[in-house]
Design a protein around this nucleic acid. Sequence first.
DNA 1: CACTATTATGAGTTTTTGCTCAGCTATTGT
DNA 2: ACAATAGCTGAGCAAAAACTCATAATAGTG
Lengths: 217, 217
Amino acid sequence: MPSAKRSVEPRRKPRQVRAELTRDRILTAAAHVFAEHGYAAGTTNRIAERARVSIGSLYQYFPNKDAILAELVIRHIDRGVWPQADRLDLSPGTLEQVVRALVRDAIDNHRDDPQLLQIMLQEAQFSGEVLDTIARHGEQRIAQLRNLLARHPDVGVADLDTAAELIVFTVELNTHRVMASSPTAAVEKFETELVGMVTRYLRGPAYPGPAIGHVHE
Amino acid sequence: MPSAKRSVEPRRKPRQVRAELTRDRILTAAAHVFAEHGYAAGTTNRIAERARVSIGSLYQYFPNKDAILAELVIRHIDRGVWPQADRLDLSPGTLEQVVRALVRDAIDNHRDDPQLLQIMLQEAQFSGEVLDTIARHGEQRIAQLRNLLARHPDVGVADLDTAAELIVFTVELNTHRVMASSPTAAVEKFETELVGMVTRYLRGPAYPGPAIGHVHE
DNA sequence: CACTATTATGAGTTTTTGCTCAGCTATTGT
DNA sequence: ACAATAGCTGAGCAAAAACTCATAATAGTG
């Protein structure tokens, strides 16, 4: 369990390329080890071993184990998280297209390593900084979607805030589940259904029953 | 991480009420401690301390730490999991009613301790018996829903299997999320939206756009 | 090359934690 | 009352894992 330990600062700031390289090797190794063994069982010695680096080196760049996971989280968020957002906003297109883009994006984000993401999210008992980063990021996504929905003419749900929240999490969680366990063949079917579900939801209240007629909300 | 350790048998079988009581106290404490600190950080000493029992007593009833979690899982499943299933099947009612029952049930199941459930599912690297119990249970839920949907006249989705899977997980995961973090006030709004989303999804493909007309699939 | 700063090493220390065991207390049956 | 049985205790052991530090190797600089 990552606890509120002191600093997240590295002991030593790399000044030579060699050092930067070592740091990267350690992080890469950590990602693999955490993904494979989980956080608790992903020992620092194992990480060092996999990175082909001595433990001493590891502790020269990271003050403690938690700092390694923290850095991984930051990197993951800083890297390609939700890069489509702006594009979506500018050229909305059909509701279904928007939703599909959303889902595709989530799937792409999970392609690298779903296991690791799982661990990062679940072990996110981080102190201040990192936890904030995650939380802020989640809210940002929800806010973005909310604004996008607010402008779209075909959206017919009443409570935009709840809807945006529900959708972001539904897409996120289901994507994670599928990517973590199902074979790639099932992904396509999953995408279709998920897009269908969200789209129909967003279009607003349908008939009370089939073949009865249109009802104003 | 729980590993495939030897026995799951307790060392001592309680013969006096006092003993049974101690055992229960340990389990209750374990549930709280695991929920609060996670499995790895939920140390046996902490559990014993919280149960106000010596560490020795703990190990008189459980051969090892894993056995405690295993017992918790069994108990959780044996207790009221998915009790509504049969009732739902017998008196389906409106599609919305069915879905609402599904969601309500999930919410009820999470009222006790969502954190713990999370941990139990995620740490479920158990050996044989317990893992099987969990897996079988999940598939059973999906199968039940699938059959129920197959019989319902208002269901209009194409791929029933994928749909059932998607719904069970969506309801489960979102419920977990909401129960774990949101205030009770938000639960009602959430329920409404979640029920709405799933119901509209199940009714099948809606119009291509609003106010255009009915389209046969 | 000589000299300094930076980086790498890994045996060893410290801390943590699952778990044992010798002995004590409480309860039960006669 | 008094064994006999069941239950309880907690200091401490052994293993594992986080982390340190003295030393060695390497890179940069004039």
